[in-house]
C-alpha cells in the first residue's frame, strides 16, 4: 500500500513537471521557429532598416515595417483610450454603487460579448462604424474619408477589448475587502474619495493587469481590424486615414506571393515582431504590477 502511494506520488509529480515544461516550451519553440524562418531577411537587411524604414516594396526587396508598426500601435492606443476609461468606470459603478441585480444581469452579457467571434465584430464595424466615420465623423470635421480608417479599426478593437477588461476589472474590485472601504468611509471619505484612495490604489496591480490584457489583445487582433482599417500603407496622425496593422499584413499575404524572394521571411519577421511587442507590453505592465503590489 505504501509502495503504491509512493509510486502514485512520483508519477503525479513527474506528470505535473512534464505539463509545466511543455507549457513553458511553447513560447520558446514559437520564438525559435519564427527567428529561424525570419533568418534570411535578418541576414540580408539590418534590423534598424527593417524597423524604421517606411519603404515597402517586396518586388524590389524593400521591407520597411514602420507603416505596419505605426498602424498597429495607433489602433492599439486608440482602442485602449476608448475602452480603458469606459471599462474602469463601468467596473467601479457595477461593483461599488449599482444594485446586485444589475451586476447579475451584466455578467452574462459581458460573457456573451467575449464569446462573439471577431469576424462578427468586423461585420458590425463595416455596417455601423465605417458608415459612421465616412458619413458622420469625417464631414463633421470638414474632411472626407472612406470610413475604412484607423478610427474604425480602433473603435472595433475597443468594443472587442471591453468584455475582457471589464470582466477582469470586476474580479479585481470584488477582491478588495469591504472592511477597507468601511475604514475609509468611517474616516469621513465620500464615496468618490473612497474609490480614489482605496479601490483604485488597492486594485492598482489588477487594473494594470486588466489594461495589459486589453492592450495585448488589441495589438494582436487580426480579422476584425483587417476588415475595417483599410489595409493601406500610410503613416498619418489623422485617425480618419486608413492604416495597415501587422496582423492584417500577415493574414492578408501569407500563402500568397511566395515566389517573391524573402517575402515569406518578411511575414515571419512581422509575426516575430508581434510576439516581441506583446512580450514587451506584458513585461512593462508586470513591472507596474510588481511596483503596485508593494504598497
Amino acid at each position: 500500500m505504501n509502495k503504491k502511494r509512493k509510486i502514485a506520488d512520483i508519477l503525479v509529480n513527474i506528470w505535473m513537471r512534464i505539463g509545466l515544461y511543455l507549457l513553458l516550451s511553447i513560447p520558446v519553440f514559437i520564438v525559435i521557429g519564427l527567428f529561424w524562418k525570419a533568418g534570411p531577411l535578418l541576414k540580408s537587411q539590418s534590423l534598424a532598416n527593417l524597423l524604421f524604414s517606411s519603404r515597402w516594396s517586396p518586388m524590389k526587396g524593400e521591407f520597411g515595417f514602420l507603416p505596419f508598426i505605426f498602424s498597429s500601435a495607433y489602433v492599439t492606443v486608440l482602442a485602449f483610450l476608448l475602452s480603458a476609461p469606459l471599462c474602469l468606470f463601468a467596473a467601479i459603478y457595477l461593483t461599488q454603487f449599482s444594485k446586485q441585480r444589475l451586476l447579475n444581469f451584466m455578467l452574462p452579457v459581458i460573457d456573451i460579448l467575449a464569446g462573439i467571434p471577431s469576424v462578427v465584430y468586423g461585420v458590425w464595424g463595416i455596417l455601423v462604424i465605417v458608415p459612421l466615420v465616412s458619413d458622420g465623423i469625417a464631414p463633421f470635421f470638414g474632411t472626407s474619408s472612406s470610413g475604412y480608417s484607423l478610427l474604425a479599426g480602433g473603435t472595433v478593437l475597443a468594443v472587442m477589448c471591453i468584455p475582457y477588461m471589464l470582466n477582469m476589472l470586476i474580479e479585481v474590485f470584488h477582491t478588495i475587502p469591504v472592511g477597507m472601504k468601511e475604514a475609509s468611509l468611517s474616516l469621513g471619505a465620500t464615496s468618490w474619495e473612497m474609490v480614489k484612495h482605496v479601490i483604485l490604489r488597492k486594485g492598482f496591480p489588477g487594473i494594470i493587469s486588466a489594461f495589459g490584457l486589453g492592450i495585448s489583445k488589441a495589438f494582436g487582433e487580426t480579422i476584425a481590424v483587417l476588415m475595417v482599417v483599410g489595409n493601406t500603407l500610410n503613416i498619418s496622425l489623422s485617425p480618419l486615414k486608413p492604416g495597415y496593422p501587422l496582423p492584417a499584413l500577415i493574414a492578408n499575404n501569407y500563402g500568397e506571393m511566395m515566389s517573391i524572394p524573402d517575402y515569406d521571411s518578411a511575414l515571419m519577421f512581422a509575426a516575430l515582431l508581434l510576439f516581441v511587442v506583446i512580450l514587451i507590453i506584458n513585461l512593462f505592465f508586470r513591472y507596474f504590477i510588481h511596483k503596485g503590489e508593494k504598497v
Binding site: 472592511g179 477597507m180 468601511e182 475604514a183 475609509s184 484612495h197 482605496v198 490604489r201 488597492k202
Partner: peptide, 8 residues
C-alpha cells in the same frame, strides 16, 4: 473592525 484594515 474585527481584522485591521490599513489603507494601501
Amino acid at each position: 473592525s474585527q481584522r485591521p484594515f490599513p489603507l494601501p
